[in-house]
Design a protein around this nucleic acid. Structure first.
Lengths: 317, 317
DNA sequence: CTCCTCGTTGTAATCGTTTACAGTGGTATC
DNA sequence: GATACCACTGTAAACGATTACAACGAGGAG
């Protein structure tokens, strides 16, 4: 009878040992590649899979003081590139034997801190904050405990104490800005999260260096309105080009339609994007600056893995 | 001195107990809301946060035989709706105290099984498979162990043994098909993953019922080519409309451009989508059937939570 | 004054592993 | 035939929590 009504219990190492007629220690050694006679080896292996033994990761974590887990906290999965980031982290780290604890805080700072606290209880071996906004004092705990922690595409203060990873936008951005000038624009509006110290600082730098007049608008502020930005831009003396992230650009495009503003005749839209796929299909010439976030994810994963195996990384990129 | 060079050790419950001058048992009781005198309560609380005590979730899991974790395996995060699904699951389940172990298998069936095995070692309290393709025998283990497990937007065999959750496409689909007929189409091509038993079975059903001639093409087969499908459709006697998922529709649109096929004059494209946001911006009339996956995610989360607190769900939707 | 009860507390077993240490028996060496 | 060495194995102590059980003293009832 494979189904008994005895209280359900998963087989433990002790069961395997008993089944193989050896001590727990020997069973453990076999399963972890320690020293053991070929005979013992065979019998333990047999017992293990006839019982369907599955080691208990929590017991192992407790004893080994290493959990093989990494916490990944997303400030918002909707932010550009978050998905690619996640995909590439998952691939890299899973393959190296780590399990990812993942949480999305949907733009809520308090929730972010709660998540981090939970990661501490779960004793993650490392922490990756994607697009963090403002991290509370709970972060200090990671630092104090010496838990490898990094921020990717950080915006604003709060994660300043962490090694930072950001995509290198510089070359693409400079080319795009040059093109704007070439096309005769002299006044642009920038709708990029995080302000001048945020993940898009390369863009700001290029803009500042270009001599163009720049309006800064925070698309994440509570009362941001695409319609309003459009209205301001198309008004006399307004910006003739708008730089933004991809989702914001779409929002603006929508506003432009509604307001009967022609793109790019009246206003040009330039998206700092990681998804050229769709932009290319729009009849509307929405230019895009492409960033490869899959590659960035890989870089972060690599850095983390080497950190976990010994040496901390440089403080950025 | 807050920084000593003694070997680093996180404070344990024993440290808290010592600090408060009580036994470990009492400390534990205070921290978990068991019986304890007000006096003890105060001193333990004080000791706990002066030491910065953080309970070890693994020790707790081991003892309580409950991990407060849920494994979520994505067959592919790139599939339509996966992101919304993830967001909504994360929100719901995190708020209920569960931590999510998340993995993306990037379309690799073998990797999927490996992930599931890892979830078993980690003793997840429940399992959610998003868009699973073909799950191996490892799934039986969840069933046998009585671990709540469900499939969302499943396609194909393999997850057939799980309670299934799928969006209800019926109303939207029927309207769309009716519209196709009204526009005079009589021959359509369907490029939907999973075949007639897959997540889009509502679409198939509506098509069958409509009396239209239907070509079935699997967009996930190794040698699928958008160009070829387009060529076949625009040839004499080909389909005059193509139904597909959103990403496939974009692919086809690209092919159409390349082949100089006008959409929708020569061929109509109909996308079964969860992302109307972008489609609406295309000049090309790519019609869309909208599905609310955020809501589906919420439904799944709810079902899981009630399952975890006692009663298993009906077998689908 | 004795006996019970009740609220509070401590002792110790337990969850499932890993691993330091101390055997064990056998073979090779003198 | 004793000695040292070797490959292998078992015993038991951790890891950090929860919790059944027993012990305790104080107070009320008889």
């Amino acid at each position: 009878m494979s189904l008994s009504n005895a209280p359900f219990r998963r087989p433990t190492l002790a069961d395997v040992a008993r089944g193989a007629g050896v001590s727990i220690a020997t069973a453990s050694r076999v399963l972890n590649g320690g020293v053991a006679s070929p005979a013992a080896r065979a019998r333990v292996d047999a017992a293990a899979d006839s019982l369907g033994y599955i080691p208990n990761a929590h017991a192992q974590s407790l004893r080994r003081e290493r959990t093989m887990t990494i916490g990944v906290a997303f400030f918002s999965l909707k932010l550009p590139g978050a998905l690619d980031m996640l995909e590439s982290l998952s691939r890299q780290l899973d393959d190296s034997g780590y399990t990812l604890l993942i949480a999305d805080t949907a733009g809520d700072v308090a929730r972010f801190d709660r998540i981090l606290a939970r990661f501490l209880e779960r004793r993650v071996d490392a922490l990756i904050c994607v697009n963090p906004h403002n991290i509370g004092p709970v972060l200090d705990r990671f630092l104090a405990d010496g838990i490898p922690a990094a921020a990717v595409m950080s915006r604003g203060r709060g994660a300043a104490q962490l090694p930072l990873f950001g995509a290198d936008l510089r070359p693409a951005v400079e080319a795009a800005v040059a093109r704007l000038i070439e096309l005769g624009h002299s006044h642009v509006s920038a709708l990029l999260p995080g302000g001048e110290a945020g993940p898009f600082r390369a863009v700001w730098k290029a803009l500042r260096a270009s001599g163009l007049a720049v309006d800064a608008v925070n698309p994440f502020s509570r009362d941001f309105s695409g319609a309003e930005v459009m209205a301001r831009a198309s008004a006399r003396g307004g910006a003739s080009a708008i730089i933004s992230t991809y989702p914001v650009a779409l929002e603006l495009l929508r506003a432009a339609r509604a307001a009967n503003v022609a793109v790019p005749r009246d206003v040009s839209l330039l998206a700092v994007s990681d998804d050229p796929g769709v932009a290319e299909l729009l009849e509307t010439p929405l230019s895009a600056i492409e960033v490869d976030l899959g590659a960035l994810g890989q870089a972060v994963a690599d850095a983390m893995l080497t950190w976990l195996s010994g040496d901390p990384p440089a403080r950025n990129t």
